[in-house]
Design a protein around this nucleic acid. Structure first.
Lengths: 340, 340
DNA sequence: CTGAAAGCGCTTACAG
DNA sequence: CTGAAAGCGCTTACAG
């Protein structure tokens, strides 16, 4: 690679010190009272030589990299990818660049990523934390490294976060089904300790209780991430072959829903006549399903933007504290139509 | 942020020079013949003080950042997100980190991104170039900055790339339709000069010619990215209302297909009875459509991995030259079943 | 108004 | 076997 032109090259070319060049190129000519003519000559030379500042050198000196580390579960999941895109745009708008990594819901991978990103001196983190990563968040907090959690958080770990009100979101989704006449409502979620998913179950249960329906624990199924497809299929089969089978099904995520819907399609079960469906999060698949799927829509733009804004605030002033539990919107479509 | 512990801190703690510490921590104790006992003491101190090397300082010194810049069209598009994930994994396996950016198919944005990433001293680029960005690739080449193109390339710009054989892929897709009895085959693509999309049209045309079908230019429609949804709808309407309407439709991308399928679903057109469909690229939506969609499957894993490997080769030795036109696979499903 | 110099945290020839 | 010193490309207090 051709050696890039440095401050020194410009300084030599013009015949001044690097200090002067630095002042001018950082628009400090006024404060430093650099001669107008001199400033012009320096700028001209910089232009001619096509000078590009070395951000690495700047960073070493300033201790700031204008880089944020983003850790999501899996960048190839549409939810993560959407959030990443919004974060990218908002970061860029503020002069920041983002380095990302996928934790695969694995605490060890997440820890590795944090360390890699720390070595690269990111100014702060936006993390969708995985299960059992509480200590990692605490570590960052203890070392006063700016971090904001997104989508998820740990009630036991005080930390800034931007998330949705998962309990409320699930409550509304299930209440909608109940209002439309469904009585045996199944739920498929992940087998996990993650709080946001627990909250979705809680919202489901609260809706059942508030409506005086039978609170039947066997209607809640937990699939393992590692064996998702098979377990979701099996669980749907179980829910449908109960002595009193379900008439509606609530999925706790888009990935669960997509897997479930494939199976339901193969079984040729009529939606919503035989089985009403409500999903969580967005995916194109909800639109293209034979019967458009009702789903809980997260305010992605607000989630992403707020996370970046909050992080930048924390980077500026590490005493900033803020948490948001944003509202979701239930997008009602045919898959949860009135029970006949 | 608490000041991190540096080499100097360890050196002071142990009572040696930073040089020694550097040697030991970089496992050069053998070459530099550092005393075994000394090495042990240094390692112990590094551990106790929880030393983390400052990658920025290393980079400034070495001129290497072990970072690769990835520029895709839009990280929130499933195709880009999938590639990004594969690149992330392969890069990590080699000790590299990736910084990404979305060009939105816009040459100006792409140029901005390149400059931001250059200032951050990425060791090389993997780029899915947007229209009219030839000069950017040339600029990188001229400055001997390692770059490999992915998914797309410019025939007029000699550059390393990893892509698929688009002409062949489209040819096979259309031949499959013809073999299954379809005769009036429409195609919807983007209005663009991008070579890989031109190639898909060429493959379509070649299949038509080779089969002695009527080569009717009005069967090829071009939608503009900026107004995709509306134009795709309108074009489908046109293709269906021709005096001799189409009996099959080939989409040049997943995004086009998803938009088109939504419309086809709304029109309640039977697939494949009234209209056979073949799509390009993957998306969950192909599986969940009422009738599973036949599609051209790209070898994503190989594309992503080869791109990273090639880039790392070029970084090591800038005389390396390589291009790959990988084969695709036509995944045949019900949407293109035999014409009745 | 301008320059010489120190320093950010590393690495690495060179000297002993 | 080990240390003093220069240097990567910047910024910035200090001196003049």
């Amino acid at each position: 690679m051709k050696r890039k032109v440095s401050l020194k090259d410009i300084a030599q070319h013009v015949g001044v010190s690097t200090a002067l060049v630095s002042y001018v190129l950082n628009n400090q000519e006024k404060e430093k009272r650099v001669g107008e003519e001199m400033a012009a000559r320096i700028r001209k030379a910089a232009g001619e030589l096509n000078y590009q500042p070395n951000q690495i050198a700047k960073s070493l000196k300033s201790g700031k990299t204008y880089t944020i580390g983003l850790i999501v579960a899996d960048i190839s999941n549409p939810y993560s990818a959407n959030i990443a895109r919004i974060i990218e745009d908002e970061a860029k708008r503020n002069g920041y660049t983002v380095i990302f990594g996928s934790s695969d819901e694995n605490a060890d991978k997440s820890w590795d990523l944090i360390n890699v990103l720390l070595n690269r001196q990111v100014d702060g983190f936006i993390i969708a934390p995985s299960e059992d990563s509480e200590s990692q968040i605490l570590y960052l907090k203890e070392n006063n490294i700016p971090v904001v959690l997104i989508d998820r958080y740990f009630p036991s770990v005080p930390a800034n976060y931007v998330a949705i009100d998962n309990c409320k979101a699930a409550y509304e989704a299930v209440m909608h089904l109940i209002r439309n006449g469904y009585r045996r409502i199944g739920m498929i979620t992940y087998k996990t300790k993650l709080f946001h998913l627990q909250e979705r179950v809680k919202g489901y249960q609260k809706a059942i209780e508030d409506s005086n329906l039978l609170d039947d624990q066997s209607l809640i199924k937990e699939a393992r991430e590692s064996n998702l497809k098979e377990e979701v299929q099996q669980q749907i089969d179980e829910l449908l072959s109960l002595s009193e089978p379900i008439d509606a099904l609530f999925f706790a995520s888009n990935k669960l829903a997509v897997n479930g819907l494939k199976h339901i399609k193969n079984l040729k079960i009529m939606v919503p006549e035989k089985l009403a469906i409500v999903g969580f999060d967005e995916t194109e698949a909800y639109d293209l399903y034979h019967c458009p799927i009702t789903y809980v829509k997260q305010p992605m733009l607000e989630l992403g933007r707020s996370a970046v804004k909050l992080l930048l605030d924390v980077i500026k002033d590490d005493s900033v504290k803020d948490i948001s539990n944003l509202d979701t919107e239930l997008i009602i479509r045919e898959s949860s139509g009135n029970k006949k």
